[in-house]
Design a protein around this nucleic acid. Structure first.
Length: 930
RNA sequence: GGCGGCUUGGCGGAAUGGUAGACGCGCUCGACUCAAAAUCGAGUUCCAAAAGAGUGUGGGUUCGAGUCCCACAGCCGCUACCA
């Protein structure tokens, strides 16, 4: 390939300016108390989601968000803010460790090399970061404070009275025992079913499972002892405080749905005592671990099982009960011959064949255990389950209802048991339909529903005659397919005893009242959010600052931090769930007989608080000094209310972190807030998600499709400024948009036009640039307009329209006979945040002194914007008929006269009567006639 | 299935309820050149043009709707038996 001639010598001046910004620390931001700190400046904290430094280097998605924040940061600096705009690396992670296993290189070495590449690439794009604040989550000094924060969490409990975290030392003072305290810590150990990958040698978070499976790794479910963080205690606050954040509504909703609050009731169902004969008892014992012995009469009394429901008003319609296959109570239940006290209701309705033998129950449980959640989900069209033979009692009406186990009920949500109301729940309906279980409508939709009207007959039948209803229903199975059943909406309670006639809302609260009164249940708020599985078994993560002594965990002292993982020869997973660090026997075993915790923290740990560390990155006494925390938390503006909520003014990153990272970071921040370490209740006031950049073919960029654009290639062909400008010109920041190499050429041409305005072929100053006052009013107006609009557009993050305005301005300069120097410099300043290199270069070539990056944002004269004449659009009945030049502030009478004088207008109003005239000065005159 | 987003020329995209298509790409023509590239200038929603039509579809509100309201369709993303 021949050397292509470059329209301007970006390859020479871009590295030059980058070197200068670097050596002069142009974008260094002093902290309070440091040299150069100006307390009169307001702070502005603009943050990027820091990258995981993969071996592949930057992709074009990175510079999209990074350029946006860089423009904001540079603009705010020019507007007189003390701008914090840092960058770092989320450098722990499984891929680095996998790579280490493959190559035999220590992950620290490969990670350092990757960071080196990222830093070079970031610098080649001219981002104005304060490089003195650069951090990596793997730095020992960073690890130290990650571990310190973990210990703060470990040493806290959640106080229900104050709804905040508090130190466990308070409980010690109250005389709580060691075990009692361990039960309430925000960081605790639990046996829990987790995703375990034998060949990766670690457990995986739910959301990681798919990814690693697709790479060919095996993943299985097994119960393991794990560290958990009690994020569920913060569920309500994590929902409520979203309201004060300037986040996209969609992201707020995603978080709300993830946390998944539902209101309802917990209802206790007791079981019929079953009599067992000796033979049954021994058979039952073979397959279960009985919690107790049947009494001397052979009766086993089973504790009541609680279910959660959002529809307590449908309790009368609960015709069976389902336990999750993993439900601990399943082991307590046992199929039986008919209980002696089988109510008349059930006699003859259940065939003996439908009563499952023990073996069937266990086979079913084992089959479910082998299935992953995903597989269960895939099969969700075909419900399955087995009848246990046991019966529970519907607490509200005393009816005996059969107890089934089925995998459509999940152990992980609610109590792992449900009351099934087939008439008003699709899943229950489907199941009941398949297994011929009774369906009993108890909610009538509002008037107008054909099914219900039909069932109601003379409008009273349903309530009085249940059997008639059921018979009638049995003859009409097609009603389900008509979408009439199950009816899961709100309506009027029927066939429900004391609830009859009440609308759903009132029925709910009346039923809850009844449950409370009769001690059968209680109001309950249930969340989908589960406690955060916080431990991993791999090597490349922060070790827990915990040791075990006599079977109890305890924190190591702060002075021992950072606790670093020892070097290992071999990170290869053993295939057993033992953490890799277990291999470092010397490290694990302490002289006093205690042993170190060998789990490590997940990658999220480091990213949970990095925005805090940026504020005071080299502090060795605290994770962030009080002063730095106070200053960088100040003055955040909320557009929603006047209370300041978040610390970071603007946070830009991809939607992939909409839930996990952003939820985890909010959780840690709130704990730190409760403990008095930070003063804002939230970390990120304003959040913006950049849209995905697709390949030129409109598909997601991927190696296998071969449509990946490497930013390095774009920089070498067109320069960093062109890449920056193009990524901002593609379209709205938040939108998904396809890459077009032709578009890069377009913005490159624009920059070349700017270049040629001021610089001659030989490199001298163009004679067109004249250091004289601007006599061209129209040109002055365009420049002023540009200063105004670009500033406004930057504030709105509407970069594409800002660039378009600068193109208009450039075209105006090009067309003008001379370019007044002062106006041109204004233009350069406006363009500078977008294309910092070329503007610095031109500025210095035309004799500008100092760095353009350090100048102030230009101002403009309002009067220059005022237009005296305008083109008034004349419409007849809303359709454009003519345009008339006239004075901007002409009175309606004048406008009307001029309009009526137009032949084009006359043509359309001829013979019609004028009904109305709408006049918007400077814009439009609409003549309504007929 | 649920939730969210999107739908405007050949393409990326502009439009406080007030001239639809700014700006850019592409294309056409012209200038410069021996020639090409680059550059500069003119043009470019559709229809040969006048008239007219036109922002996914169908309704509505309004003097006036891409924009607001109702219904529907298509595409994209997330989530998924959450009781």
């Amino acid at each position: 390939m021949s050397e292509t001639r470059k329209p301007f010598p970006f390859d020479e001046f871009e590295p030059k300016w980058q070197a200068r910004w670097d050596s002069e620390k142009t974008f260094r931001t002093p902290n309070p108390g440091e040299e150069g700190f100006d307390a009169s400046k307001p702070k502005y904290y603009v943050l990027d989601m820091f990258p995981y430094p993969s071996g592949a280097g930057l992709h074009v998605g990175h510079p999209e968000g990074y350029t946006a924040t860089d423009i904001i940061g540079r603009y705010k600096r020019m507007k007189g803010f003390n701008v914090l705009h840092p960058m770092g690396y989320d450098s722990f992670g499984l891929p680095a460790e996998q790579y280490a296993i493959k190559t035999g290189q220590h992950p620290a070495i490969t990670t350092a090399a990757n960071i080196e590449t990222f830093r070079r690439q970031l610098k080649s794009l001219g981002f104005g970061y304060d490089w003195d604040r650069e951090i990596a989550t793997t730095d020992p000094e960073y690890v130290r404070w990650t571990q310190w924060i973990f210990l703060e969490i470990y040493n806290s409990y959640f106080c229900e009275e104050t709804n905040t975290a508090r130190p466990v030392s308070e409980l010690e003072a109250k005389g709580w025992s060691r075990d009692e305290i361990d039960n309430v810590r925000l960081a605790f150990v639990a046996d829990t079913p987790v995703w375990w990958s034998p060949d990766l040698g670690t457990v995986l978070a739910n959301e990681e499972v798919e990814e690693w499976k697709s790479k060919g790794h095996t993943v299985e479910r097994r119960p393991l002892r794990q560290w958990m963080l009690r994020i569920t205690k913060y569920a309500q606050r994590l929902i409520d405080e979203l309201d004060t954040l300037d986040w996209p509504e969609g992201i707020k909703l995603l978080q709300k749905n993830w946390i998944g609050r539902s209101e309802g009731a917990e209802v206790a169902f007791s079981f019929l005592p079953n009599k067992m004969v000796a033979a049954e008892i021994s058979e039952w014992k073979l397959v279960n671990e009985p919690p107790g012995e049947p009494d001397k009469f052979g009766e086993l009394h089973i504790d009541p099982v609680k279910v959660f429901t959002t529809r307590p008003d449908t309790l009368y319609g609960a015709t069976y009960m389902v336990l999750a296959p993993e439900h601990p109570m399943v082991g307590f239940l046992h199929p039986n011959v008919w209980p002696d006290n089988t109510p008349e209701l059930w006699k003859g309705e259940l065939e003996p064949a439908r009563v499952s033998p023990y073996s069937a129950i266990n086979a079913y449980r084992q089959a479910c255990a082998a299935k992953s959640d995903l597989e269960r989900g895939d099969l969700n069209k075909d419900k399955s389950g087995v009848f246990t033979g046991a019966f529970a009692v519907n607490p509200v009406n005393g009816e005996k209802i059969p107890v089934w186990i089925a995998d459509y009920v999940m152990m992980g949500y609610g109590t792992g048991a449900i009351m099934a109301v087939p008439a008003h729940d699709e899943r229950d309906y489907e199941f009941a339909h398949k297994y011929q279980i009774k369906i009993k409508p108890v909610v009538a939709p509002e008037a107008g529903d054909t099914f219900m009207l039909e069932l109601l007959g003379d409008s009273q039948e349903l309530c009085r005659d249940r059997d008639a209803l059921l018979k009638r229903y049995a003859t009409k199975p097609e009603l389900y397919h008509d979408g009439l059943l199950p009816f899961h909406g709100e309506g009027i309670a029927v066939n429900s005893g004391f609830l009859d006639g009440l609308p759903t809302k009132e029925a709910k609260s009346k039923m809850i009242g009844w449950l409370v009164e009769n001690e059968k249940g209680d109001r309950k708020i249930q969340f989908k959010l589960r406690d955060w599985l916080f431990s991993r078994q791999r090597y490349w993560g922060e070790p827990f600052p915990i040791v075990w002594k006599d079977g109890k965990h305890q924190a190591i002292s702060d002075s021992e931090l950072p606790l670093l993982a020892p070097p290992l020869e071999d990170y290869k997973p053993s295939g057993s769930p033992e953490p890799i660090l277990t291999k470092a026997t010397d490290w694990v075993q302490l002289p006093d007989g205690s042993i170190r915790e060998t789990n490590t923290m997940p990658q999220w740990a480091g990213s949970c608080w990095y925005y805090l560390r940026y504020c005071d990155p080299s502090n060795s006494d605290r994770f962030i000094s009080k002063e730095a925390e106070a200053y960088w938390s100040s003055n955040t503006q909320s557009s929603i209310n006047n209370t300041q909520c978040g610390m970071v003014d603007l946070y830009v990153g991809g939607t992939e972190h909409a839930v996990l990272h952003l939820l985890y970071a909010r959780f840690w921040h709130k704990v730190l807030f409760d403990l008095g370490h930070v003063r804002t209740p939230e970390p990120f006031q304003k959040l913006v998600n950049q849209g995905l950049i697709m390949g030129e073919d409109g598909q997601k960029m991927s190696k296998s499709r071969g449509n990946v654009v490497n930013p390095d290639d774009v920089v070498s062909a067109y320069g960093a400024d062109s890449l920056r400008l193009y990524e901002m010109f593609m379209g709205p920041l938040e939108q998904v948009k396809p890459w077009q190499m032709k578009g890069v050429e377009g913005v490159s041409r624009f920059l070349a036009r700017v270049w040629r305005l001021a610089v001659t072929e030989e490199g001298g100053v163009s004679p067109k640039i004249q250091d004289a006052p601007c006599s061209d009013k129209e040109l002055l107006r365009v420049v002023s307009e540009t200063i105004k609009k670009v500033g406004e557009d930057i504030e709105k993050l509407s970069f594409n329209t800002a660039i378009s305005q600068m193109m208009i301005c450039t075209n105006a300069f090009t067309q003008a006979d001379t370019v007044p120097l002062a106006e041109f410099v204004h233009f350069l300043k406006v363009l500078n945040p977008f294309a910092p290199h070329i503007t610095e270069e031109i500025h210095s070539r035309i004799g500008g002194e100092g760095l353009l990056s350090e100048t102030e944002w230009p101002t403009y004269d309002e009067s220059a914007l005022i237009r005296t004449e305008c083109e008034l659009v004349v419409q007849v009945n809303g359709k454009l008929r003519d345009r008339i030049w006239m004075a901007m502030d002409a009175p309606e009478e004048t406008a009307k006269e001029l309009a009526l004088a137009s032949p084009k207008v006359q043509e359309h109003i001829d013979g019609k009567t004028m009904r109305k005239i709408i006049y918007v000065p400077g814009k439009i005159l609409n003549l309504v006639a007929n």
